[in-house]
């Protein structure tokens, strides 16, 4: 466990060296959310109603933007190969990379949500549920997306391909994530979607790192 946290810290340090990336990612997230009123109109009631869905879609698209690079640079400069043949278990490093990815690109989005919340005038109850659902749901984006990123290592047009293979897999996250916050509007308990989302997080935690190591080994064979 100590080793894992050391690796996470290591990954974080590397990523924090380009802290500008995180800022760009958050800005992209905000920008998507701001484009919707431009397209739909400024009716306050409508915007409030669609806010959870818009925020979740923006979060998923933003994740697509940053997932591309989770393994790609290590793959290109050959350090991924070094990692694979090193005595450290690959799954440890994969888990560290996923955690670091979430801390750098997932967590900041949650902090950016209040700004969108103000613009869209989200009621406080919806807002708090949205924060909870994003707290549970965004790690799934890093896990499933990271798995997809490992699958497209070395592929032509990897970025587009990544979106094509990962977005359908993320549909349940979008549905349950949005539903938890929408529960207030539609008048049912937010508990079932949140529990389902948690179950998906646990399943993804259990499956995604090991399959990702498999995919990376296949990529380097």
């Amino acid at each position: 466990m100590n080793k894992l946290s050391w690796f996470i810290w290591h990954e974080l340090k590397i990523s924090l060296r380009n802290a500008g990336d995180t800022a760009v990612i958050v800005m992209f997230f905000l920008l998507i959310a701001l484009l919707f009123p431009m397209g739909i109109g400024s009716s306050a009631a409508l915007l409030t109603r669609i806010a959870p869905g818009v925020i979740w879609v923006a979060a998923i698209l933003t994740a697509m933007l940053s997932l591309d690079s989770i393994f790609a640079s290590d793959f290109e400069d050959g350090s991924l190969e070094q990692i694979v043949i090193s005595p450290t278990p690959l799954i440890l490093i994969v888990t560290a990379k996923f955690t670091a990815h979430w801390l750098i690109t997932g967590l900041p989005l949650i902090f950016a949500v209040p700004i969108i919340g103000l613009i869209y005038d989200i009621p406080i109850k919806v807002f708090s549920l949205l924060l909870i659902s994003m707290g549970i749901g965004t790690p799934i984006l890093s896990l499933i997306g990271g798995l997809g990123a490992a699958l497209v290592l070395g592929a032509r047009r990897g970025g587009v391909l990544l979106a094509l293979i990962v977005l359908p897999l993320l549909v349940p996250v979008l549905i349950f994530g949005t539903a938890a916050a929408d529960a207030v509007f539609l008048g049912f308990s937010p508990k079932p979607p949140l529990l389902l989302l948690s179950a998906m997080l646990l399943a993804a935690l259990a499956i995604a790192p090991s399959i990702t190591t498999l995919a990376i080994r296949r990529a380097l064979e």
Binding site: V152, G154, G158, L161, I165, P168, R218
Partner: peptide, 29 residues
């Protein structure tokens, strides 16, 4: 879309054996 992803991943690599392995993992997921 799952089918589409499988087919696209299969064809996306210069080395065909690499594509079929990645696509196989995707099919299982």
């Amino acid at each position: 879309f799952l089918y589409l992803g499988f087919m696209a991943l299969n064809k996306a690599f210069d080395d065909p054996s690499r594509g079929e392995k990645s696509a196989a993992i995707l099919a299982l997921v």
